[in-house]
Design a protein around this nucleic acid. Structure first.
Length: 431
RNA sequence: UGGGCCGUAGCAUAACUGGCAAUGCACCCGGCUGUUAACCGGAAGACUGGUGGUUCGACUCCACCCGGCCCAGCCA
């Protein structure tokens, strides 16, 4: 009985017969010598089919194979310098489960619109496979880091009755005769959960109906949001930078092969270490001025501003203490400067933009009520949230980290749409 | 929602100043016992996104429509 294995474990079987279950990635042939690239979901390996070494019907079966046909092959694992990857299978038996019809994605170049229309098939390609493995590892690293530091996963609702930040566009849905919205952040619920369980996080999909058409935006994306009771801005920054550094370290430890497939310059990742450089918003404005960028204190940074600022460093950059006017109502005022709030963003290097946003929350009932009024937000729907300031209010902080932006930065891909299996954007709902 | 660009064979591109729509890949047929996105030979495949206009003649110029991409705003 030939043991079944997977391509990622082939090196354990050199010199022995194995069985692989997979799909045809590509075929080549030199007359009576056939080369068969086999893909099995864990990797790609070359199979060699010799007309002299196999029964005639096996070689005939090889000749019928098309791209993405489903097959089982058996044969001896060999180490061979001529094989891509260094290992190959000397095929002795080939079982065809299905001959695939004309596969739309050829090994040559395609446009992104075409590939996105075939996203369900594009995921089989080497590059997308590598991105998905890294995405998985980024998510696992987030969970491992938080779990091992005594954070409790407490889920927050996807369907919500009102906006977290009134101004942002929400996806509205009909909920048994009344309006409801898809969540754009679990934060307000996180704050309640932190008062119950001290250190918590939520991890789930987030929805923004913004009409943004840039490579940095999706309408549906995944976010991990930690929230910590008895934690000020400094404490919050510490958690955020340790999380980011942990993720980078983990990917370098476990996914070097995938980073190679993506031709990522890993030197840019290997230098990442805490503490990250910090600048206040006001210092960041100075950086812009010194770089010759026209920018008025009080405004929000645009994508190109962020790039100019973060390019001064080879580390993720922590920007803190923003003007209150450009941040949400729940951000705590800076006791040392009333114009500012205790917010923090982390900008990824190499122009990948904001990967983390958060801050210390306003814990004073009167100030919070006043901020709601200033923002013209309906107080009734926030009554439960205000309860958190009536019953044992304490300093607390939290942040959200966008998974796709982190994956884009680590993998070095240009567009967020390749970092999620089925991207949802302004112009794309299928497949 | 503004600004810019683009729609040509299944895919990726070309066609100069308005004059017979071309090349590569994929598919099909044939050749090749070490290929590396193999290679060599052959065949097939297009009302050039839509509607109208200018012209002897439109892939090419003009108007409108449809679809997409990039940039900006907003954000993670």
């Amino acid at each position: 009985m030939t043991p079944v294995t997977t391509i990622q474990h082939l090196s354990d079987h050199v010199g022995h017969d194995v069985e692989l279950q997979g799909w045809v990635y590509n075929t080549r042939s030199s007359g009576k010598l056939g080369f068969l690239m086999i893909r099995d979901g864990t990797g790609i390996v070359q199979g060699v089919v010799s007309s002299q070494g196999v029964p005639a019907e096996v070689f005939a079966a090889f000749e019928t194979l098309t791209q993405e046909s489903a097959i089982t092959v058996r044969g001896e694992v060999r180490e061979d310098q001529r094989a891509p990857g260094g290992y190959e299978i000397l095929v002795s038996d080939l079982e065809v489960h299905q001959i695939a019809e004309d596969y739309p994605i050829s090994p040559k170049e395609h446009g992104t619109a075409f590939l996105m229309d075939h996203r369900h098939l594009w995921l089989r390609s080497r590059r997308q496979h590598a991105i998905m493995l890294i995405r998985h590892e980024v998510i696992r690293a987030c969970r491992d880091f938080l779990d091992s530091n005594d954070f409790v996963l407490v889920d927050t609702p996807i369907i919500t009755p009102n906006a977290v930040e009134g101004t942002t566009t929400l996806f509205e849905l009909e909920y048994f005769g009344r309006s409801a919205y898809l969540t754009q952040s679990g934060q307000l619920y996180n704050e309640a959960n932190a008062m119950a369980l001290r250190k918590v996080y939520c991890f789930g999909p987030t929805f923004r109906a913004e009409k943004s058409k840039t490579r940095r935006h999706l309408t549906e994306f995944w976010m991990v949001e930690p929230e910590i009771a008895y934690c000020d801005l400094e404490c919050n920054i510490g958690w955020a930078e340790e999380l980011v550094a942990y993720i980078v370290r983990r990917i370098l430890e476990t996914r070097m092969e995938q980073l190679k497939v993506l031709e990522r310059d890993v030197g840019r990742l290997e230098v990442i270490k805490t503490p990250f450089p910090r600048v206040s918003y006001t210092e960041a404005v100075d950086i812009l001025h010194k770089a010759g960028v026209e920018f008025e204190w009080g405004g929000d940074f645009g994508g190109s501003d962020e790039t100019v600022i973060s390019e001064q460093y080879d580390q993720p950059l922590i920007v803190h203490r923003f003007p209150a006017a450009i941040k949400a109502f729940y951000m705590k005022r800076d006791p040392e400067d009333e114009r500012l709030v205790l917010g923090v963003d982390i900008l990824a290097p190499e122009g990948y933009g904001e990967i983390v946003g958060g801050g210390q929350r306003e814990d004073d009932l009167q100030v919070l009520v006043q901020r709601l009024e200033e923002e013209d937000l309906p107080r009734e729907v926030y009554e439960w949230y205000l309860d958190l300031r009536r019953f044992g209010t304490v300093p607390h902080s939290g942040f959200g980290m966008g998974i796709e932006r982190v994956v884009a930065w680590i993998t070095g891909v240009q567009h967020l749409r390749e970092t999620i299996p089925y991207p949802r954007t302004l112009t794309r709902l299928e497949p």
